[in-house]
């Protein structure tokens, strides 16, 4: 990675302090793990710093390891053709993460989907706090978050408005 990139990463380390949990580079892909409190700052830095310039919101998704949620931001730089995987681990209880929609407008629907499927609160999202507007793939009155490992489908009696039994 180029010298400005190294400088930018050093600046990021300095700015985040303990917030930056790990930072490694393998084969042109920058892998970062940050504390959820530092996420927004890190994201802004990744987009704006010289040598990083991750201007393209590639993807945003989460998964449930059983103990905690992992949220991954896949970023890309259109000018420097490099990828960054920005990772945040969240405790299951009261999982919340800052919205990056103000940094990359393209993350808006991805964040809604993360809320929809995993119930991770997106703090600062334009639709935050209103589940009927945050729900995106599921009906707005759906109860529960079906991609969580502990999600138990229950038949609500109405096949159109509620989870169905799987077998």
């Amino acid at each position: 990675m180029s010298a400005p990139a190294e400088a930018a990463l050093d600046a990021l380390r300095k700015a985040l302090g303990d917030g930056l949990q790990s930072c490694s580079l393998d084969g042109g892909t920058l892998r970062l793990q940050v504390a959820s409190a530092s996420l927004h700052q890190a994201a802004l830095h990744l987009r704006d710093a010289d040598g990083l310039r991750f201007d393209y919101p590639g993807d945003l998704f989460a998964w449930d390891t059983g103990e905690r949620f992992v949220v991954v931001y896949r970023l890309w730089s259109t000018t420097l053709s490099q990828t960054a995987l920005l990772r945040v681990e969240l405790e299951r209880e009261g999982a919340a993460v800052a919205s990056v929609t103000d940094i990359w407008p393209g993350m808006n629907w991805h964040e809604r989907e993360v809320y929809d499927l995993y119930g991770i609160e997106i703090v600062g999202h334009p639709d935050a706090g209103d589940p009927t507007r945050m729900r995106i793939l599921l009906p707005k009155d759906w109860e529960g978050f079906p991609f969580r490992k502990d999600y138990v489908p229950v038949f609500s009696g109405d096949p159109l408005h509620g989870p169905q039994e799987t077998n």
Binding site: D55, Y56, P57, G58, T78, W104, P105, G106, M107
Partner: peptide, 8 residues
Amino acid sequence: EKAIAHGA
């Protein structure tokens, strides 16, 4: 700029 920022 908009296309890139939106991930088009």
